[in-house]
């Protein structure tokens, strides 16, 4: 899976959580939770969705690495590479 496809999976999750946001206009390097105004409940829901769609385990200790969209894409790409 390439990074565009991973990004699409993230967007699929975000559409449910923040339906009114224009995801294409999202600054990929900004703090995702602040940009989208999502709380810890929404963030956990997003990660649960990604766990289901990509089969990637995301331990809680890694949450702090997942600040921006770019971080999240890179993290998931690395995890998918590892599991290959």
């Amino acid at each position: 899976m390439n990074t565009d496809e991973i990004k699409q999976q993230i967007f699929n999750g975000l559409i449910d959580i923040a339906p009114e946001v224009e995801l294409d206009e999202l600054d990929p390097n900004e703090n995702l939770r602040e940009e989208l105004d999502i709380d810890s409940y929404d963030f956990l829901s997003l990660l649960i969705g990604l766990n289901e769609s990509l089969g990637v385990e995301i331990p809680e200790t890694d949450y702090e690495k997942l600040v921006s969209l770019t971080d999240l894409v890179a993290y998931l790409a690395a995890k998918l590479d590892e599991s290959r």
Binding site: S40, I48, E60
Partner: peptide, 14 residues
């Protein structure tokens, strides 16, 4: 942290 380490992501505590 100890609780969540043992749990799958769906069962994690906020």
């Amino acid at each position: 942290a100890e609780q969540n380490k043992q749990r799958s992501i769906k069962e994690r505590l906020l």
